[in-house]
Computed example of a mutant assay.
Amino acid sequence: MFSERELRDLIISVFMIAFIFAYPHINLTYFLIALFTVGLGFIFHELMHREVARKFGAISEFRAWYEGLILGLILKIILGATFIAPGAVYIYKDYLTTEESGKIALAGPIANIILAAAFYILMIIANNYLLYMIGFLGYHINLFLAGFNLLPIPPFDGEKVLRWNPLIWAIVGIPLLIYVFFSIFF
């Protein structure tokens, strides 16, 4: 179940992130592909955080960070750099262990990795340009979202994963951060 506020924040965030990824390719087709691929990646990322937190007995709900969305838009337009900070799943529980917090944090990037794999398969089996572009953008956007979120600094997911298990963070995070470093101006 979604509250009215959570649903509104998710929808606004998806549209803003899609615009950030689509800019400067401002045409309807490219924007719709970005909307679909970013929408899936972002929604599944946040919902995985939410659902894993709920499995640990927490109350959790997504909240947009409008200042972060505006900052991302400005950075993309002025510098051409992709920066995504749309908000977060807020978790309410008396106490979360470091392990619970780490697993909740890792769930979002894992969702993006799974989606990236699915989009990669679509990209290699595509028999027309539109499907290829959906696969291509979905693959790259989801790897970017996974890697960016695994930055090992607060408030990103990577900080919580690193605190819980440095080895898991290194195995999952380092290759993705290398990818993000080389694609920051994607």
Rank of each mutant, 00 (worst) to 15 (best):
S3Y: 14
E4R: 15
E6W: 13
E6I: 07
R8P: 02
R8W: 12
D9H: 02
L10S: 07
L10N: 09
L10V: 14
I12F: 03
I12L: 13
V14I: 15
V14T: 13
V14M: 13
F15Q: 07
M16D: 01
I17N: 06
I17L: 15
A18D: 06
A18G: 11
F19N: 02
F19H: 00
F19L: 14
I20H: 02
I20L: 07
A22K: 00
A22Q: 02
Y23K: 01
I26P: 06
T29W: 07
T29D: 13
Y30L: 09
L32K: 04
I33R: 04
I33N: 05
F36Q: 03
F36M: 15
T37M: 03
G39R: 08
G39Y: 09
L40K: 07
L40A: 14
L40G: 14
G41M: 03
F42W: 07
I43H: 05
I43Y: 13
F44A: 11
M48K: 10
H49K: 12
H49R: 07
V52A: 04
A53Q: 09
F56G: 01
A58M: 09
A58T: 12
I59F: 14
I59C: 13
S60I: 08
S60E: 10
S60F: 06
E61G: 08
E61F: 11
F62G: 05
A64Q: 01
W65R: 04
Y66I: 05
Y66C: 00
Y66V: 01
L69E: 00
L71H: 00
L71Y: 10
L73I: 06
I78K: 03
L79N: 09
G80S: 02
A81F: 05
T82H: 01
I84Y: 00
P86C: 03
P86V: 02
P86S: 04
A88K: 07
Y90W: 12
I91M: 03
I91F: 06
Y92Q: 14
K93V: 09
D94S: 15
D94L: 11
Y95Q: 12
Y95W: 13
T97Y: 11
T97Q: 08
T98L: 15
